[in-house]
Structures are given as structure tokens and as C-alpha cells.
């Protein structure tokens, strides 16, 4: 198992490196002019060159990639024209062109926001979805089942940002959205995120209702459920112990991948509710040609995706005793 995780991590690192090189190529070789952006409108040629030099933008592309990767692993120093050395310790992702802050620090500030939104929302949609899906499957064909399926289809057919906008505009009973660090004040943290959680949670719960319902219906048709019934145990125990245990496994796989996807795509939630997460950060960087921030965001996203895939595989071994990694 440990060996498997190490092997997977090694291959994960190679995936991240490929992503890094590809995004580096896209961003840095594209016809953009970072030095011009930093320098501003009234820029002299000398100043432009000095900026290019201090950011190593005058180096060949390969060298730039090498320096960038070295920065991530051991850190790097930026020397400005005046000879001032700025130390950027590992993992160094460079400095924001527009804000002058280290990208690592900006990401480190934004990541907890995104994680709070996504994991909080995931708890809502997972539990709501599994409970309603299981109930619908248990009472398959009943009015409850039909309402659940119809309702979830209806919710799913409305674009997410429309729901989010409606909540943001009209659900004024909810506390105002704002981010307060959990460690400062957990109550404020939760109340500031509540609207985002409910929006993300309830819209996705519709999908999870349908996943769980389908998975549960399939499970309840299995031979081992008939065996359980023939043992004389209660219907509740059959559904919630024997059924849910088996039905949840595929749903949890989807959950892992959904969380990974949302961590890198919480854009709508963050911009509509004004929460300063990764999505908002990269969106702003994109609008301002702030390449180091964009690069950092992409890199973080690929790390998150690869890690979540690994987590799903490891969790699977705990859920299904037949699965052994190796």
C-alpha cells in the first residue's frame, strides 16, 4: 500500500511537470508583454530592458523554465537593476506583476477560502443527495420518488450561476457573504460561507440524489440483499446497512473527482459571493496578464486534481475490501 502510494506520487509528479511545461509554454511564449504591463504607459526602453533582465525574461525559454522549476524546489533570488536582491524562498512561484506580492503567498491566502467553500458545499450535497436518493430508491415508483427525480432534473437544468445569482440577490435572510478565517472566528467563518454552501450544496445535491438513487436501486436488486432479507433482519437495516454500504462506493468515487474539479473551478461561487478564493484570483490574473499568478493557479490546480485522484483510490480500499492496491 505504501509502496503503491509512493509509486503513484512519482507518476503524479511527472503529470504535474508536464502540466507545468505545457502551461509555461502557453503563457510565456504567447505574444504578451509582461515587462510592458509592469512598466506602464510611459516606459523608457532602458527601464523595459531592466525589468526584462530582473525577471530573467531576456533568457531563452528553456532557461526560464529551469529557473522557474528551481524556484519551486529550492527558491530563487531576483536581482533588480539597482543590484537589490529579493529572496524568494521555496516553493517560489515568482511575484505577481500587478501586485508585487509573492504568488505563493497569494495562493496560500486564497486556497483556504476555496477549500472552505468546496468542502462545506460537498458535505451539504453529499448528505442531502445520498439521503434523498436512498429514500427515493427505497420507495421506488411512489409519489415521493417521482417528486424527487423530477425536482432534481429541474434543478439540474437551471445553469449553476443563475441559481447562485438568485440566491445572492434574493436570499437576503442568509448572512452576508464574506470570508473570515476559521481560526479567527469559526462562527463568522461559517455564517459568511453559508450562502455559498447552500447554493453549491443544493444544486449539486440534485445530481447526487440521482447517482445515489440509481446506485441504490441496483444494489437493492442484488442477490445479497435477498439473502439479508431471508435472514429476518429489519428492512431498515437491509437498506441502511447492507444497501447504503455497497451503493455508496461508486458515489464516493464521483464525489472525489467532483471535489477536485470544484476546487479548481469555484469561479462562479467565488465571484458571485465575493469570496477571495483561487478562482477569483486566477480570473483577475487572467484579466491583467498577471502570468506568474496564472501559472501558480494552474499548477495548484493540477496538483489538487492528481492528489484527489490518489485519495479516491486509497479511500476505495477502505470502502471495498475486494480492492487491494499494489
Amino acid at each position: 500500500m505504501l509502496l503503491y502510494i509512493l509509486r503513484r506520487l512519482a507518476s503524479a509528479i511527472s503529470v504535474v511537470i508536464v502540466t507545468l511545461v505545457a502551461s509555461f509554454a502557453l503563457f510565456f511564449l504567447a505574444p504578451t508583454d509582461p515587462a510592458g504591463v509592469i512598466c506602464g504607459n510611459r516606459c523608457t526602453a532602458e527601464r523595459l530592458e531592466a525589468i526584462n533582465e530582473s525577471l530573467d525574461l531576456d533568457q531563452p525559454a528553456l532557461t526560464q523554465i529551469g529557473l522557474y522549476m528551481k524556484g519551486i524546489v529550492v527558491g530563487r533570488d531576483y536581482v533588480t537593476a539597482g543590484g537589490v536582491v529579493t529572496e524568494c524562498s521555496a516553493p517560489c512561484l515568482g511575484y505577481s506583476y500587478t501586485l508585487g506580492q509573492p504568488v505563493t503567498k497569494m495562493l496560500a491566502q486564497a486556497l483556504p477560502v476555496t477549500m472552505s467553500i468546496v468542502f462545506g458545499g460537498a458535505i451539504v450535497y453529499f448528505f442531502v443527495g445520498v439521503i434523498t436518493g436512498t429514500l427515493a430508491a427505497k420507495h421506488r415508483g411512489s409519489p415521493l420518488d417521482k417528486i424527487t427525480v423530477g425536482g432534481s432534473l429541474l434543478i439540474n437544468s437551471v445553469p449553476y450561476f443563475v441559481v447562485a445569482l438568485l440566491v445572492a440577490l434574493y436570499a437576503t435572510v442568509l448572512p452576508t457573504s464574506a470570508y473570515h478565517p476559521f481560526l479567527d472566528n469559526p462562527v463568522l467563518w461559517a455564517s459568511g460561507l453559508l450562502a455559498a454552501w447552500l447554493t453549491l450544496g443544493l444544486t449539486n445535491a440534485a445530481s447526487y440524489t440521482r447517482y445515489s438513487r440509481a446506485s441504490m436501486i441496483e444494489t437493492l436488486g442484488q442477490d445479497y440483499i435477498r439473502t439479508a432479507r431471508s435472514k429476518g433482519i429489519s428492512e431498515r437495516r437491509i437498506v441502511y446497512r447492507h444497501g447504503v454500504r455497497a451503493a455508496l462506493t461508486p458515489v464516493i468515487t464521483i464525489l472525489g473527482l467532483d471535489i477536485a474539479f470544484q476546487l479548481t473551478n469555484a469561479l462562479f461561487t467565488e465571484s458571485i459571493f465575493g469570496l477571495p478564493g483561487i478562482g477569483l484570483l486566477t480570473l483577475r490574473a487572467f484579466a491583467q496578464y498577471d502570468l506568474p499568478v496564472l501559472m501558480g493557479g494552474v499548477l495548484l490546480g493540477s496538483v489538487v486534481l492528481v492528489l484527489m485522484n490518489l485519495v479516491v483510490d486509497v479511500v476505495y480500499t477502505f470502502l471495498d475490501p475486494r480492492v487491494r492496491l499494489g
Binding site: Q222, D223, Y224, R226, T227, A228, H242, R245, A246, L319, D320, P321, R322
Partner: peptide
């Protein structure tokens, strides 16, 4: 039952 493979709960 007929098939003990599918009649026992795998988990």
C-alpha cells in the same frame, strides 16, 4: 441460494 458468490455481501 444458487450462487454463493453473489449471495454473500462482498463488503
Amino acid at each position: 441460494f444458487q450462487d454463493p458468490q453473489s449471495s454473500l455481501h462482498p463488503y
